[in-house]
Nucleic acid binder design. Structure first.
Lengths: 209, 209
DNA sequence: TCCCTTCTAGAACGAACGCTCTATCCAGTG
DNA sequence: CACTGGATAGAGCGTTCGTTCTAGAAGGGA
């Protein structure tokens, strides 16, 4: 362990994380709430209990490189959660409903402030920062693949699973967004019910319309 | 007409609009692409061919008041489009598919830059600017009501229409977002197919699962 | 004619922005 | 001990931010 001996108080709200990790996590959290342009490097360095020098030491590419790292961090975090929930239920439809519940819990617990960690960062930079947009696209693709594999494991046909994975991710994102803006979890609950019904419709042996 | 005689060249890309209208439209368009924090008052005034004095004359509340006006403008614009599309098809499921097609066309035409006019503005200010968030929530509610009324007109039960309106708006928003980030209209096409199937399921006389 | 309101015009302010730069600290190596 | 290189520290750069302020220009009513 190279840097741990150098932690000053070792306390603070950041545990025993290295400086780089603290910066990335703080950047991810702040950009999730305030977007790319709304989050300053100095604010990140302060809340991460790092200094400006450290930020530019670890991210010579500046704010853009930091934003990419923040998006990738958010992507992995949500991917882990998604995997856990999807694998925690026997029925794929119930698993998706559990996802909507988890998203609603997270939103409510943060007073409707912490939405999708990728959306807010990516949306404010639409096209202006190609690296950020590419990282965001990869995040969506990754999450979609997790849903796709879960649906395949439940026996759905490849084409059906592929299309449904698209709609599951889109609807989760949109419902989380609508819930956040409306400060109301009804969009997420409706999304859960409807996605479950869509998945059931494509289960092997289910009645096709 | 009070101000029209005062238009300078009357030319420019803004037609014969009044100064206030030019400012609102420009603000809406810029915030749609760059978000709230990414869009400066000076940029708005320049692109609107107005001056800072004019901006603060019409919007004494400053950037926040201007953002609220921009969101309301975007809301009305999309509401008109939505109403037109929903009324343009006999079948409600086909109408929703037409919506996804229109969204895809708009995105592609702008090189995947112009997404939802409300989302980008509202997301960057999550909770920080209550007026903006309230305006965004009203926009979503308004669009949802349009879908709800269309579904009711097609004979759906009130509860079904209510829940479906939620999911239609959420999924349209999410799929537009995913399409924009991925620069690919597949999310919107999948969303259209699945939403249509959901609506068909709830048509009066349709087989219930 | 003069005044008043409405609207246009842009200089100027303090604050914050992203970023660069130099200086310092410390563990490891010889 | 001196030297090295990763990491920390923050003053300061030029620019832009949102906002304020004063001045002027264009009709309408007296």
């Amino acid at each position: 362990m190279k840097t741990s001996a150098r932690q000053r108080g070792a306390a603070g709200p950041h545990g025993a994380l290295g400086t780089r990790d603290r910066i990335v996590r703080t950047a991810s959290r702040l950009m999730q709430r305030q977007g790319y342009d709304g989050t300053g490097i100095k604010q990140i360095s302060q809340e991460a209990e790092a200094t400006l020098g450290s930020v530019y030491h670890f991210f010579p590419g500046g704010k853009q490189e930091l934003a990419v790292a923040a998006i990738r961090h958010g992507e992995k975090e949500f991917a882990d959660e998604l995997r856990e929930i999807l694998d925690g239920e026997d029925d794929p439809a119930e698993a998706v409903v559990a996802c909507t519940r988890r998203l609603a819990e997270g939103l409510r617990a943060s007073d409707w402030v912490d939405g999708c960690p990728v959306t807010a960062t990516a949306l404010g930079t639409a096209g202006r920062v190609p690296d950020v947009q590419r990282a965001a696209a990869e995040a969506f693709a990754h999450w979609r693949r997790l849903v796709f594999e879960r649906l395949r494991r439940a026996g759905l046909a490849e084409d059906d699973a592929h299309d449904l994975a698209h709609t599951v991710i889109s609807t989760l994102e949109g419902a989380e967004l609508a819930a956040q803006v409306s400060q109301d979890d009804r969009p997420l609950r409706a999304a859960g019910r409807h996605l479950a019904r869509l998945i059931d419709l494509h289960r092997p042996g289910a009645a096709r319309s």
